[in-house]
Structure formats: C-alpha cells, structure tokens
Nucleic acid binder design. Structure first.
Lengths: 250, 250
DNA sequence: GTTTGTGAAACGCTTCACAGCG
DNA sequence: CGCTGTGAAGCGTTTCACAAAC
C-alpha cells in the first residue's frame, strides 16, 4: 500500500511521500538499515531480502518488513528490495539528501576526537565549526576546522548554516551551552555531557552518557555472576538468556 | 512490597534483595537516577520526592515510583526517599559496589579521549588498560594507563581483571577485536565502531554509533522543516510536539 | 518456490488514578 | 495533608502467521 500524501504540486525526480508519523522506534532503526545497506552495496549486492538485511542489521526480518512498509517502500515479492533504491529512500526520509553542518562545542579531548572522526562525511555530516571558551585555542584549526569562540556562537551558526550542535563540554557548562545553541536557533542537540538539559519543546536533544552505558553493562555482569553463585539453590535453570542486541555467533 | 528472595544464608550488613528480572527499561534508567541523586546529594538534599527526582532525571514521577518499587525500595509516604540510602541501593543493584576495570581497545583519537575522560572514576569504573596494534604506541603510557599490544589481550585481561571491553577501533577491525575479547573471557562490550558485532549469547554488547545519533536528529530536523513548508496545505496544526527526552524549559 | 506486506495477537512499557500509610 | 506503592487501563512495539504477488 503506497501512501503518497501531501500536495500534488511539482514533484522531484524521485517521488517522495510524506511521513506524518513514522514510529519513533522505526526512525531509530532506519540509520542501522542504512549502514547495513551501504555495506551490502559495497559487497556487490543489487538486491536484498528482509532476512538478509535483518541479519546484517542485527534484528528480526519481520521487523525489517514492518519498518520498510511504513516508508511505502516497494520490495518485490519473491525477490527482495533493490539496495540502491532503498538507500535513496532512507536517505531521503532521514533528510540526508543535503549534507548537514555540525558544530562541536568544546575542543577538549572528546571534541578533538569528534573533529577527527573520519566516518561523518560519508554519512551525511560535516563538522563545520569547533567552538571553545579558551582564548588560547581560538583561531587555531583542527583537521582543517576553525576554532571559534563561544561568544561568537550565533554568528558561527549563521555563517556555517549549522543544523546540529554537539555538546562536548564538562557537565557544568552544558546547560549554558545548550541555552546559547537554542538562542542561536539550533534545534537539534547531541549532548555528551553527563546531565539533563532543559530546552524548549521544539528542540530535540539526544544524550549519550558513556558512564551510563558502562553502568548498564555492569548490571548485566553483576547479575550474571550473582546467578552463577546461587545457581544451586533452586531449580536447575541452565542460564538466563542474554539481552544482547547483537547477532548470534556464526 | 518487599521481595527478598534467594538463600537465607549469611546476609551482608545491608540487606540485599535479588533481582531475577528487573525490566530492561528500568535498568537503563537506574543510572540516570543515580546521576541525579549524586547531584541532589551534593546540593544538600537528604531526602527526595519522586516528583523532584523525576524532574532532575528528566522523566515522569510515576515512572520513578514504579522503577524504584521494583527494587523493593523503601520510600517513606508523606516524605520521599532517603537520598544516601537510594544511592547505595542503586549502586548495589548495578553492581557498582566494587569498581569495574575497563580495557579500551584502540588508542586512536577516541581511545585517547576515553582514557582521559575524568568522569569514570567517580562512577564506578577505572580504565586499566589501553590496547593497540601499533607497535610504536605499545609501551607508552597515556594518563598513566599503559598501552599493551592486542596480541597480549588475554594476558592483560587476566592481569588487570578486566570486566568490560570498549571497542574504539575502525569498523574493519571491530569484529576481530570482539572475537579476541570474547576469547579472553570478557562478557561485556561497549562498541563504538559503526558495525554489528557477532558474539555468543552470553556476551552483552551495547553499541554507540555517533553518526546514527546525528541521523536520528537529522530526521526530526527534516520533518520540522518539511511540515513548516506545507503547513498551509491542510488544517492549521500549530506545530508537531517534539520528542525530546529533555525537561521543558524552566 | 520465494519473499513481501499486513492484519491480529502478544508483549512490555508508560500513565493514570487512588487506596493506604506516615 | 503529602507522598508512596500499585492495580488497571492505555499505548506503542514486536512477533506471528499467512494470503497475495512474483
């Protein structure tokens, strides 16, 4: 069922449907499919089944089909999906047809690593600005990216057409930086500082806290060793099944 | 309802319940509560209501209560939760009572940033080893952490009692590194390489792909601008509400 | 035969709303 | 009166299973 909604005005070369309310869970998986599809394309596959894509992305095939059907995508029954076309589709939906400019705030260790990360260009992003408060660093270039001062953030955002701000500062500075980003008109923030940010409802924040990731792993490790200890006390449950989102071993 | 299960043998000073099947969603929020609680403690709060903790952690109060009730936690009606006690409880559940040793594989930009990240010690982790394949780097120390060779991984894991492996290599090397970590007995892996890892079911993998985070943000940005464009075509929906997990602005 | 697309069932998580306790 | 703890309702997501299409 194709659901081409919206105005029937001038259409681009590739017909593009609107996506009023793609489920959030689906949205967060589309990038994973995209990554898998690029790999498959490089391996020479022209076409891919939901089963194969599921394996490559580390999910179940039914999920892949449900997700892709939401895009009004045309797979071919008995064959699968056209890899190139699917890549185009997903990139279109994610808004990756145009490259997005990113500003990294905080030119410390993490900001340095982000600036030097080679993976971004091929996946739709360009780090166009590095921002810091340290006057000593301002004016330098890191991997060709100019370092500007936080006080000039609004000007930098405007000049570089920044769509996404990445906060790579200590927790103490993060809220203030977020406020400045919002003030400069940035509506998407990726936050690496270990704190909750307050932003207006029309601003999107995603947070990555490295210690939290480790703590979640720690819980599973802890449970594993605990149940190994008291495994004798009650019924001979062989072993609790893991919760890993990763593929089974081949 | 307190659910103290398990053997009634020698109990530690603080009574510790077992947690056969804490919901995964709850597990992933406990670290966020912990972070918020440490902040509140530092601000001088002895006690905290579910409402206050919810605000500090960026969630709803009912969620906090449900989550904490799973721990068989004792809040006091009319008062709230004892901050110190709750911190202890959560640390216990997450297995943070003992410090966990972490090995970072890949001493590139990202590995460097992780090694230098000051936030880990206070949150239960110690980066005890940096591992690389580059002979030139082996033997150096970074922030006091010795760099060892990937070929000696098993020995390093044993010597340093590594509980968690962090993969900070390019995608091409990640699977091989994962295999070696598994071979060395590591059961928890945090993967920063942009690929899916295959591991046995008893190994836990969490993946953080920076480009994927940006792509999810890109979707929201894309949708925002698209709906701004065709906002005139159909009913005057003022603006789609954001999906930000962050607190509203104050 | 193979594989998609999809209703319908199953599941887990969130939110509500209030009884019960301090 | 305030706040926790929790059944029950509501909602979104996952999984199943199969008819339709190639």
């Amino acid at each position: 069922m194709s659901q081409f909604a919206g105005r029937d005005a001038v259409a681009p070369a590739v017909m593009v449907p609107d996506f009023p309310d793609l489920p959030e869970a689906t949205v967060s998986r589309l990038p994973e499919y995209l990554r898998a599809l690029h790999q498959l394309a490089q391996l020479g596959h022209d076409t891919v089944s939901s089963e194969a894509l599921a394996t490559a992305a580390g999910v179940k095939s039914a999920k892949v089909r449900k997700d892709l059907s939401q895009l009004g995508s045309y797979g071919t029954r008995g064959v699968g999906y056209d890899v190139d076309r699917l890549v185009q589709q997903i990139e279109q939906v994610l808004g990756l047809s145009q490259r997005r400019n990113v500003a990294v705030i905080g030119a410390g260790n993490l900001g340095h690593a982000l600036a030097g990360y080679a993976g971004f260009p091929s996946r739709g992003f360009r780090i166009s600005a590095l921002v810091d408060v340290e006057p000593a660093r301002v004016g330098e270039r890191l991997y060709g990216i100019p370092i500007t001062h936080l006080d000039d953030l609004a000007a930098t955002v405007a000049a570089e057409k920044i769509a996404i701000g990445v906060i790579a500062t200590p927790a103490g500075a993060a809220q203030q930086v977020a406020d400045r980003l919002v003030g400069a008109g940035v509506k998407c923030i990726l936050n690496f500082a270990p704190c909750v940010l307050s932003v207006p409802t029309d601003v999107d924040v995603r947070s990555v806290d490295l210690a939290i990731e480790l703590q979640i792993l720690s819980f599973h490790e802890h449970r594993r060793t605990r149940s190994a200890l008291d495994g004798v006390t009650d019924g001979a449950v062989p072993h609790p099944v893991s919760h890993t989102p990763a593929r089974k071993v081949v």
